[in-house]
Design a protein around this nucleic acid. Sequence first.
RNA 1: GCCUCGGUGGCUUAGUGGUAUAGCGUUCGCUUGGUAAGCGAAAGGUCGCGAGUUCAAUUCUCGCCCGGGGCUCCA
Length: 627
Amino acid sequence: MKILLLHSDFIEVEPKKKAIKDAEDVEKIKKTLKDCLVVFISAEKEDTNIEGVAKNLKEQIDAVASQVNTKKILLYPYVHLTSKPSPPKRAFDIIKKAQILLEKKYSVDHAPFGWYKAFTISVKGHPLAELSREFGAEKIQKKVKKERKGGAFSRWIITDEKGKTYEVDKKNWKNCALFKKGKKYDMLKIFVRNELEGNPEKEGKPKHIEYMKKLELVDYCPESDVGHMKWYPSGLLIKDLILEYQEKNIAMPFGAFKIQNPLLYRLSVPEIRKLLGEFHEKDYSWEEENDNLILRFASDPGAFPFMNKLNFSYKNMPIREYEEAICFRKETRSELVGLRRVRNFLMTDVHSFCMNINQAKEEFRILNAYGKDLMDSIITKGRWVLGWEVVEEFYEKNKKWLFDMIKELGVPSFIKIMPERSHYYDMKNEFQSIEADEANTQISTVQLDTTNGERFGINYVGKDNKKHPCIIIHCSTFGSIERTICAILENAAIDEKQGRPPMLPLWLSPTQIRICPVSDQYLKAAEKLSKEIELENIRVDIDDRVESVGKKISNSEKDWIPYVIVIGEKEAKSKTLPIRIRELGKGKVKEMSIKNLIKEIKTKTKDMPFKQLSLPKQLSKRPIFVG
RNA sequence: GCCUCGGUGGCUUAGUGGUAUAGCGUUCGCUUGGUAAGCGAAAGGUCGCGAGUUCAAUUCUCGCCCGGGGCUCCA
């Protein structure tokens, strides 16, 4: 069945002449309807299940009518939407059935069936005014809109880091005894408030927008669509380092193999259509000769069809895959703020395909630990909290397992209980960074999914030599790299707000050590020193410009350089160097040997990936990217 | 998409119905320095784009594009 829905100011219909033998008997008068939803309907050959199709027709119309807030509906039989129409009688039956179903809630009419009709229509201009839908008799995956401010949830539970629970509701949450136990739970309190009451009013631009430009990391790109960013070398370095962290510290130890799927998908493939679901209106899509194409909104459109063609048995389980997935979501314009929300982003997506619920639970537990490490390495300890969404029935059965995980993670949590499953997952968690403006940003999420394995035919061969659907654990370790960088920068903003120097995590700092020669006589010494440092895989640059030392120091402060060394005559003779260390505070200099400095940096960046910055070592050779 | 505020050299900005201000940066000259900004000069602007009103528009009006905030939603 194909339908076209038009929210119109008015429509005039006038039956002219019978087009088919079975046309219904009506008077030849002009009818006008004002402010109504007009639904053009084509029943197709395969719509043999009259009841089923009529029911879906009713639901589709109902969904749109309630969104555009109209009580009047006109069903307009319109065979021309399809090239393979059903017999007329069946089409009319479906329309009549749907009309009866809709009449409970709406004032419904239908245009004469089987007539040549003249009509005039005026369509409203808003975004939902013109929609088309295509469906059959099978049950449509119900699009459950998550209601605002926790509306889809029935119970809320707060826990401390040891798993001690406090049940709260929308009204009394502020009085929760846990929040009276000192500042330790302030972050959780902010998150609970944001979830139950909404985010606080923001003052001005988020800080990370200023920082991302100032530090020459990322920038808006007016030549592209909104929400597509351009990356400068330093930003790209951070992005690459995070991807390397994902690969070396998470995916490989976890045992996932890396795959890559296309960005572009054909809408005529049933699996792809099934997956679209609620993202449909956010797709970048366009028509080609024989098909509609979309850019993927997540790794799933590639990953699921990829997995259901793999041949694997219980001996391989669990089987894990990951992808650095470039994704596209056409968010409405004003949702886009700096890096917090973009239209083109890079998600690191891990899936684990499991044999049974116990295996899935264990995978979930393991992935949590990676999530915690990641939050501590890129955000700061204590600046993030955990959110959970759990289906009531699942919660009751798996309470002990859940609280054991919370204890293991040792982070305060906020659990939201859903009376029934509204999405594909029975349970998910959210690693939430809490920011300077008290917004929360989700970085990682792990989800337990018992439905998609079956829906997409992702099966393993069991001991019984039969195929069984997998339970899928989804894990976006970095929900988006862009958003992760946003959180890192917003975290630096907290430091600045509280009077500490804002910094990037040392392992992500584009320059880790800067050498400032006092004059060009000491350039050689600087060069020599830098080579010693480079050998240890530490990023070092030299401010070789003809500028005063004061100027060079000033610039290094603006660039958030963690370690600055000035070298001149004194240093050429001495064994120790004066190191200006940013994290110690304004103007703090510490005498240190180069060996000890290297050792300090190596210790602080232990187990973290290293990569060279793709800019000349000499500042005099670098262009200015911003400003 | 809706509501709202904005767009002036590479960046940040003043200002005006008669083509425009300053700082940073850039280039050149002087300065060879000691932990947050040395001195001087020069170059650099269709005042976001298009249309309208006007003798005249960067300034007023409308449309579009881009950006900020709000509604909303999520990774």
